[in-house]
């Protein structure tokens, strides 16, 4: 009698920037759904403000960002900034997509707890979320 009504992990999967390919984001969203999470998917071409505001309104525990355009070092700091402005400092952050190894440090410094690159087993993402969200 537990699962259906007890607190669920809520995850926002967002695609910042201008690239229009959201296949990877959708695969991750489905894996998390199958893992029992409630996944809010907002579609492509989200601005940093829109992502932070959606995270606030949906009161998510986790924000996962998917990016292929290479603009992560430009966009992610702005997203983190917009989230801080709104007091969203206790949200777990992860990202995925085409992200060079040499950017890892910078993203960790921003607060990203994990980076999932192409070829990641989606089960690892589900496991990561359950291990890091206290509920």
């Amino acid at each position: 009698m537990t699962a259906p009504t007890s607190a669920k992990i809520r995850v926002l999967i967002a695609k910042p920037g201008l690239d229009g390919h959201d296949r990877g984001a959708k695969v991750v969203a489905r894996a998390l759904r199958d893992g029992g999470c409630e996944v809010i998917y907002t579609g492509i071409r989200q601005t940093p403000e829109m992502i932070a505001e959606a995270a606030l309104q949906e009161d998510v525990d986790v924000v996962g960002l998917s990016i292929l355009s290479g603009a992560h070092l430009e966009l992610f700091p702005r997203i983190v900034d917009e989230m801080k402005k709104r007091g969203l400092t206790d949200v777990l952050l992860f990202c995925g997509g085409i992200i060079p190894e040499e950017d890892t440090k910078a993203l960790e410094g921003l607060g990203f707890a994990a980076i999932f690159r192409p070829g990641t087993n989606t089960q690892d993402i589900v496991k990561f979320v359950y291990e890091h969200v206290k509920k």
């Binding site: 998390l32 759904r33 999470c37 409630e38 907002t42 829109m50 959606a54």
Partner: peptide, 18 residues
Amino acid sequence: FTHGAILGDRIRMQELTL
């Protein structure tokens, strides 16, 4: 089965987000 869900209605209401 899993009690998970994908909630996608925001996609159609983007202009309202901000």
